[in-house]
Design a protein around this nucleic acid. Structure first.
Lengths: 354, 354
DNA sequence: GCGCGAAATCTAAGCGCTTAACATTCGCCC
DNA sequence: GGGCGAATGTTAAGCGCTTAGATTTCGCGC
């Protein structure tokens, strides 16, 4: 690995000044074609790779966008590098992963590099700051970045938060119609299946979760049905789901259907129910929200509401790029729609198989 | 968005020199605790976010690792931002996506930022160079980076190539036992199902594809069976798979089983077969290679060989990080194992359902 | 009160690239 | 041949941070 060539080396070899080399790369038409060729030849010969750091410093922009998430999937332990991934415990890709795909696709299309950061633990300030310092704009999942950090970062670069609400000046948000999606789902359960006794598993910690619960309660109320309390469970925290299930059982108070605020919680609940010897949807129907792949993989498939995850990611990038380009109100958009996906866990018959 | 605060601003507000501020952030013990507190307070007040560009320039390292891939999944068209992702055409995540997850997990664990770049079209030199200029080490999928670029980049930073063979000095490779995996699969088809007339769909363009074909032919030969020619098909290029299928039909030469070198090709082939009114595995058995989620989602599930995708990604990061740390022979490793995953498309009965 | 080494700070020289401002060259026309 | 504007090049001043090496400050023992 011979020591890296710089602009100076190329300039010397090509017999021109460093400015010319710089122009040759960034504004080829400002340079005579002979010169251009000579510079390129020299660069090639030296294996010149421009330093993005230096470029970023000089330009004041890095040409990269950051994505900051936490990971609901527990990172596998340090030592299992050799372990073959287990096909049964397949939970990847989750909501965040599919959104990330959208972000990736759009970044690529727009010519931006994508910088990925994140934690599974508490979003320690310095980590966000670290990725924030590397990019021109940041996309963050709601809850992944604390308010303090958010304020700090958004004072420097534009930030789009996914699945939150505007908490901090200058932070943009992507709107998804969580409420209507959940209302559609609940309506299906009431109308098609005639369920009356509902359970609700989830949390109300973020605006999107609250919207889901709103859609749920509004529909029940319209149907003249009682609204159950929220039984707490955090996506990715399977024990809480299991505990919730046991709670219902112990109280002898199992609902007809357990509506969960995420697919991840729903899957955990189903696992717990089946572990207790109950069948889904036989003894209890269960539904989720998000539309992750693991839900489709389930047998029968999970009834859920699908969010347009890829679209969310792409829109976030678009907003950021436009904002950076100075487009006014780049963040204004229609809420993205979420759609009911009927699987088998609500009690609907499985589709005719192949 | 007030203009970004720099080290100078913080230093001034805290009443110390910039060096002290720098130390406060990077080597806190070299600074008296009162000073440290004062600096932090000032930084907080100003919303100071250190510039990674400047830091990278000064340090000569960026603290980031790059991942460069092409995308077999055709990027959705520009305008469908609003379109709800289609649940039926679900192909994500592909092989590369799962490897990427491994890379992400490991980068996070090691405290490296991850920079993602890539093309779906020809790997134009400058794009690779762009990400190469931003990172301390690069992970690239075989074929994603041309040899010229590879040479150029590997002269500057360590590079690990996935699924290739060493072509360029200094480029490391991750070894997966493709040959044995395919041999196990073929063996299953011969022994358990008694298939005799084989078809092989795929290509031989990269070493790993050649290894798969080797495992296939060796097993057939051992069994005294004739080795079919390779019918060309490129993963992600469904029309070639469809054409291949039509070719068999037209020649009236449909094999008992069509062994494909990737799951993606297998899925395309199955689509094509079913479109022609044939059943899988009834009329023809089909197998894949990789172990992508879409294969599991198929009904019946695709019989395939699973690669330890996440492990591949993690190992790549480990090699890079160790190499950067100066560990000698950091890239030496046992080949990772690939394992046979029996689904239904080979003719095996589906597992007892729930 | 003085002298010393250790601890805490500061000074200043880059890191590699961009770009405004200035200097040359060229091609053309009169 | 001289003059001019356009096309090319060059000079040099940063961009914000790290880090040797110089300098100052402190805590102590005598």
């Amino acid at each position: 690995m011979a020591r890296k060539a710089t602009l100076y080396d190329v300039a010397e070899l090509a017999g021109v000044s460093i400015a010319t080399v710089s122009f040759a790369f960034t504004k080829p038409d400002r340079v005579k074609s002979d010169t251009l060729a000579a510079v390129m030849a020299a660069a090639d010969q030296l294996g010149y790779v421009p330093s993005a750091a230096a470029r970023g410093l000089a330009r004041g922009r890095t040409g990269a966008i950051g994505l900051y998430a936490f990971d609901y999937l527990l990172d596998s332990d340090a030592t299992d590098e050799q372990a073959t991934d287990m096909p049964t415990a397949r939970l990847f890709p989750l909501y965040a992963d599919e959104v990330q795909r959208g972000v990736q696709v759009e970044c690529r299309r727009r010519g931006y590099a994508l910088m990925i950061g994140g934690t599974r633990a508490a979003p320690h300030l310095s980590q966000v700051i670290d990725v924030a310092g590397r990019v021109d704009g940041l996309i963050a999942f709601a809850g992944a970045v604390g308010e303090t950090a958010l304020k700090q970062v958004s004072g420097r670069i534009p930030v789009v938060e996914l699945g939150g609400e505007v908490r901090v000046d200058g932070v943009r948000t992507i709107y998804v119609d969580n409420r209507q999606g959940m209302a559609d789902l609940t309506s299906h359960l009431v109308t098609v299946h005639g369920h009356r006794r509902f359970g609700y598993l989830g949390e109300l910690g973020t605006p999107e979760f609250r919207q889901r619960f709103d859609g749920f309660t509004a529909t029940l109320r319209d149907a003249g049905l009682p609204v159950p309390p929220v039984t707490r469970s955090h996506p990715g925290d399977d024990p809480t789901a299991a505990a919730a299930v046991r709670g219902f059982l112990e109280r002898g108070d199992l609902p007809d259907v357990l509506v969960c605020d995420t697919d991840q919680s729903a899957l955990a609940a189903i696992d717990a129910l089946r572990a207790e010897g109950l069948t889904v949807p036989g003894d209890v129907a269960v539904t989720g929200f998000d539309g992750i792949v693991a839900g489709e993989l389930l047998s029968p498939a999970l009834t859920t509401v699908r969010q347009p995850m890829e679209a969310i990611g792409r829109l976030a990038v678009r907003i950021l790029v436009d904002t950076l380009a100075g487009v006014p109100d780049a963040h204004v958009h229609e809420p993205l729609r979420s759609v009911l996906v009927v699987g088998g866990t609500c009690g609907c018959p499985p589709p005719a198989g192949t």
